[in-house]
Computed example of a mutant assay.
Amino acid sequence: MANEEKIHPGENDQQITLIDDKGNEELYNVLFTFDSEDYGKSYVLLYPEGAADDDDVEIEAFAYTPDENGDASSGDLFPIEDDDEWAMVEEVLNTFLADDDMQ
């Protein structure tokens, strides 16, 4: 199935502002980024700024173009529209969350 993915935890100061369809801005923290050899893309997973550890948090995921430093914070974000690609991203997220629970 998928190749081994290299997960890069988000830096404390790595944040992205998302703008919804109505023009509202919301600040998100980077949970982690990873690259997929199968799809030839980089991905970023985000959660809302100010979310408490015990809150159920909706995590946003995007493919992205890294900036000159390889970061997602100032590169372009792209929606993930392919079902198989979504399944791969969810699998990586579930592995990340399971590993995080073990620590």
Rank of each mutant, 00 (worst) to 15 (best):
M1C: 15
A2Q: 14
A2F: 08
E4F: 06
E4C: 03
E4P: 01
E5L: 13
K6P: 01
K6W: 09
K6N: 14
I7V: 15
H8Q: 11
P9Y: 01
P9V: 09
P9G: 06
P9I: 14
P9N: 11
E11C: 07
N12F: 04
N12T: 14
D13F: 13
Q15P: 00
Q15H: 07
I16K: 02
T17K: 01
L18Q: 06
L18G: 06
I19S: 07
I19A: 04
D20Y: 08
D20W: 10
D20L: 10
D20V: 14
D21I: 13
K22W: 05
K22Y: 05
G23F: 07
N24Q: 12
N24Y: 09
E25N: 08
E25R: 15
E25L: 04
E26W: 11
E26H: 10
Y28W: 00
Y28D: 04
Y28I: 04
N29I: 07
V30M: 12
V30Y: 07
V30I: 08
L31C: 03
L31K: 10
L31S: 05
F32E: 05
F32Q: 11
T33G: 04
F34S: 10
F34D: 10
D35R: 13
S36P: 04
Y39P: 04
G40Q: 03
G40C: 01
K41R: 12
Y43M: 07
Y43K: 05
Y43T: 10
V44K: 07
V44R: 10
L45G: 06
L45Y: 09
L45D: 09
L46P: 00
P48D: 02
E49R: 09
G50T: 01
G50F: 01
A52P: 00
D53H: 03
D54G: 00
D54F: 03
D55R: 00
D55L: 00
D55E: 11
D56C: 02
D56A: 09
V57P: 00
V57N: 02
E58Q: 06
A61D: 03
A61Y: 09
F62Q: 04
F62S: 04
A63I: 06
A63Q: 09
Y64S: 10
Y64P: 05
Y64C: 07
T65S: 12
T65F: 01
P66G: 02
P66R: 03
P66T: 10
D67E: 02
E68N: 02
E68T: 04
N69R: 14
D71Y: 05
A72L: 06
A72F: 03
A72I: 06
S73E: 06
S73T: 05
D76T: 14
L77E: 00
L77C: 01
L77W: 02
F78N: 08
P79G: 02
I80E: 01
E81K: 06
D82R: 05
D83Q: 12
D83T: 13
D84K: 12
D84A: 15
E85F: 07
A87M: 15
M88Q: 14
V89D: 08
E90V: 15
E91G: 15
V92C: 13
L93R: 11
N94H: 13
F96A: 08
F96T: 11
F96W: 13
L97D: 04
L97C: 11
A98K: 14
D99Y: 01
D99I: 05
D100A: 14
D101A: 15
D101T: 05
D101W: 06
M102N: 12
